[in-house]
Structures are given as C-alpha cells and as structure tokens.
Amino acid sequence: MDGTALNQPWWIDLLKAAVVINVFLGVVAYATLIERKLLGRMQLRYGPNRAGPFGLLQPIADLVKMVRKEAFAPAAAADLLYIVSPLVAAFTALTSFALIPWGPVWSIGGYDVTGWVADVPIGLILLFALGSLGIYGFIVGGWASGSKYSLLGTMRTCAQMVSYEVSLALSVLGVVLMAGSLSLVDIAVRQQETVWFAGPQFIGFLVFFVAGVAETNRAPFDLPEAESELVAGYLTEYSGMRWGLFQLAEYANVVMLSGLTVTLFFGGWGGPGLPGPIWFAIKLACVLFVMIWIRATLPRLRYDQLMRFGWKVLLPVATLNALVTAILVVAV
C-alpha cells in the first residue's frame, strides 16, 4: 500500500493470522470434497455422500481416519528426513496464505484492519521462494522413503518443478511490470483502479495457469504421482497423517495457486456490490472448478513431452510475453 501508516496494532495481526490459517485450512479440506463431488458428477457418479448431509462431513471423517491410522515406515527409509519432509511441505504451503490479500482495509473501532496478513514489498518473490522450499519436502520425502517407485517419482518431481518454475516466474513478469510493484496488495489494487490483468496479460495468464497446474502436480501434469505408472510416486511409502500432510500440502498449493491467479489476473477482492472477501471466494471457486474440470478431461502427458512442452513452448512464450510487455510499458 502507499505510505500512509496503518493504525493496526500487533495483536490484530496475530488474531487475523489465526483466523486466516484456520479458514484456509477449512477451504483446503473442503476443496478435496468439492473436487471429489465434482469429479463424481462429471463421471456419472455421486461422489462422497455418506458422511453427514451431502457428504459434508467427509473431510472430517478423512482427517479422523488419517490421524488414527498407523504411520508405517519402510525399513529402508532414512528416519529423520522421512518424517520431516511432510512437515516441510505442509508448512511452506500454509505459510504462503499469509501473503494472499482477500479484502480491502476496514476501519473497525478506530483501528485499521487489513484484508491480508502480511503485505511484503517483495511478496511475489517470497511466495515463489516458499514454493521452492516446499518442493524440497516432496523431493526429499520421496528419496528418503527408500523405495524405487518413490525414487522415480522424486526424479520426476525434480525435473518437472524446476522446469515449470522458470516459466511460472517469467509469466508473471508482465504483471509485475504493469503494476510496477512486487507486492500482491499493490498488484490487486492496481487492477481495481485500471483493468484486470487477465485482459492485457492474457498470454501471461495462460502460461501462468498451465505452469501453475504443472507446479501443483495436477492432471494432466500429475506425472510425479501417476498412479498407473508409479503407484503414487513420492507418496508411495507414506501412510497415516504423514500422507495426510503431503495431501494437505498439495491441496493447499492448489488453493494457493488459485488465490494467486485471482490476485494477479482477476483483480483480487475487487468487484461490484458484494464485499471483498466474497468476491475473492467466488473467483477462487471458479479457478478451482476449472482445475478440477481439466483433471476430469485430460490424459496424462509423457515425461519427455512434459519436458519439451515446458522448455520449448512455455518458456519461450513467457519470455516473449515479458519482453513485449516491457517494451510496451516503457513506450507508453
């Protein structure tokens, strides 16, 4: 935000952080339910509908099941790394939510309450850094499992994440140039003042979305855990809540990426009539729906095709997009 100091004491931040983490955990949990429900409907079946009305208690039932399950570890697993990896993955995924803005600044009782937990001047870079750290969880976890399937999954994760992160970062360069800031709040505000960047940055948006889907291991880029090839990839040897944490990290990443898409390309919380958080939720749901839809429709890419697509299609397009945007921004 601009230079005006916000009257926001530290305890409000703390309170907000507690609320945000819980709300987003709920969103992540219910994202799994929505995905299963929608996939079910798209595949001529009902999806979960046993636990609670309309299956609404399914995520809670899943959680109880995972916590109560014995967490087996293979004898060949490297103890410490094997246990720490899911924690790393889940921690970084959840931390990212602090940076996503979901509402404007409200004045409540003389205090300024911001619709975000932290507005860092280099928010976007921090987000990517956290994402890169989170990947270590997947890579190390697969390696530490001491299983061949996990190892193969890890190999794929390494290659895929590294290749697609480059395109992901390059694709948002256009947005950064147009907004003139790396802060996510500034980018969202800037869009509300002008236009949603999905318009002028349409190519950047496409590249970002495709690379993002790949980055979150979603179909058709779900090679690291391709069940028909590698059983479950790096997840193969995990069970119980360790598996649950990995799963949580994945869905948290999916929700985070959807939130980031909304913030970078669809004006964040901006919209007429309804309050900011509601608009944010609506847009988030739309992006999530598209991701689930893609999963129901597309087959999986092959390893070499994935690499070729990442390096020979996405990367040049993203670079070109950034270049053209830079020239236009400077010229206009």
């Binding site: 595949q43 079946r45 779900d222 391709a226 028909s228 999963r295 429709t297 087959p299 999986r300």
Partner: peptide, 16 residues
C-alpha cells in the same frame, strides 16, 4: 486404457 493414460473419466463413461 483411458485410465492407464490418465483420462480417468472415460472409465465411467464406458461402464455406463
């Protein structure tokens, strides 16, 4: 075959 290639929905359509 759809399932093997990752196109999971085909399985349910065919089973209809």
């Amino acid at each position: 075959t759809g399932l093997e290639l990752g196109a999971i929905s085909m399985f349910w359509y065919c089973f209809r």
